[in-house]
Simulated assay, not measured.
Amino acid sequence: MHDFIINASIQIVPVVQDRHPYEWVDEAIAVIQQSGIKYEVGAFNTVLEGRYEDVMKVIDDVNEFLYFKGCSEWISNVQIQIRSNGDITANEKTDKFRQ
């Protein structure tokens, strides 16, 4: 894949009863925070931004973390936007709505 900037969103939906789902989500967000990749946490998902390989690594790291920490079941909703001839950023799409 190219080295342009892409953006993606990831939403983790724990399907568990062992603890409050927000606890699993908070730990998944901590994995993203520790990655060094640009991110923005929202109410329903977290937007990631960076090179394709870096973004995909973080998505993989989140799922691997949940697996190795013993989360018994979860849904990972992922959306990825890629532009084949240049960068695509979240700000490009949302700045016009910020006050």
Score class of each variant (00 low, 15 high):
residue 23 E to G: 03
residue 86 G to V: 06
residue 73 E to V: 00
residue 4 F to L: 04
residue 36 G to Q: 08
residue 34 Q to G: 03
residue 3 D to H: 11
residue 44 F to Q: 04
residue 93 K to F: 09
residue 66 L to A: 05
residue 27 E to N: 09
residue 74 W to R: 05
residue 76 S to A: 15
residue 3 D to T: 12
residue 17 Q to A: 11
residue 43 A to E: 06
residue 4 F to R: 10
residue 92 E to S: 14
residue 18 D to P: 01
residue 59 I to H: 01
residue 38 K to A: 12
residue 47 V to S: 14
residue 2 H to N: 14
residue 61 D to Y: 06
residue 62 V to K: 11
residue 38 K to E: 13
residue 73 E to D: 11
residue 96 K to T: 10
residue 39 Y to F: 15
residue 62 V to A: 11
residue 79 Q to K: 15
residue 78 V to N: 08
residue 70 G to H: 08
residue 81 Q to V: 12
residue 93 K to W: 09
residue 12 I to H: 04
residue 84 S to I: 09
residue 40 E to C: 01
residue 46 T to N: 06
residue 98 R to D: 07
residue 99 Q to A: 13
residue 24 W to E: 08
residue 61 D to S: 14
residue 58 V to E: 09
residue 84 S to W: 11
residue 73 E to G: 03
residue 91 N to L: 12
residue 18 D to G: 01
residue 88 I to L: 07
residue 2 H to C: 00
residue 21 P to W: 08
residue 97 F to N: 13
residue 40 E to Q: 13
residue 1 M to C: 02
residue 15 V to A: 09
residue 56 M to N: 08
residue 78 V to I: 15
residue 54 D to Y: 01
residue 5 I to W: 01
residue 59 I to E: 03
residue 8 A to S: 15
residue 67 Y to A: 05
residue 54 D to G: 02
residue 99 Q to S: 13
residue 31 V to A: 08
residue 67 Y to G: 00
residue 12 I to E: 02
residue 82 I to T: 14
residue 41 V to K: 09
residue 36 G to H: 10
residue 18 D to N: 14
residue 97 F to V: 07
residue 61 D to L: 05
residue 65 F to N: 03
residue 16 V to M: 03
residue 72 S to E: 13
residue 19 R to Y: 03
residue 38 K to G: 00
residue 9 S to D: 11
residue 90 A to R: 10
residue 41 V to I: 14
residue 27 E to D: 14
residue 83 R to K: 15
residue 24 W to A: 11
residue 55 V to M: 07
residue 67 Y to M: 02
residue 11 Q to N: 02
residue 42 G to Y: 01
residue 62 V to I: 15
residue 48 L to I: 13
residue 17 Q to E: 15
residue 39 Y to E: 05
residue 31 V to H: 09
residue 55 V to N: 05
residue 29 I to K: 01
residue 95 D to M: 12
residue 51 R to L: 05
residue 31 V to T: 10
residue 77 N to C: 09
residue 79 Q to S: 13
residue 24 W to V: 07
residue 89 T to Y: 09
residue 38 K to C: 02
residue 20 H to T: 02
residue 4 F to T: 11
residue 16 V to Y: 03
residue 77 N to H: 12
residue 65 F to E: 01
residue 2 H to T: 08
residue 46 T to R: 04
residue 18 D to K: 06
residue 12 I to D: 04
residue 48 L to H: 12
residue 63 N to C: 11
residue 74 W to I: 04
residue 97 F to H: 14
residue 11 Q to S: 13
residue 31 V to C: 08
residue 3 D to A: 09
residue 54 D to R: 10
residue 44 F to A: 06
residue 40 E to F: 00
residue 76 S to V: 04
residue 60 D to W: 03
residue 33 Q to L: 02
residue 60 D to I: 01
residue 45 N to Y: 07
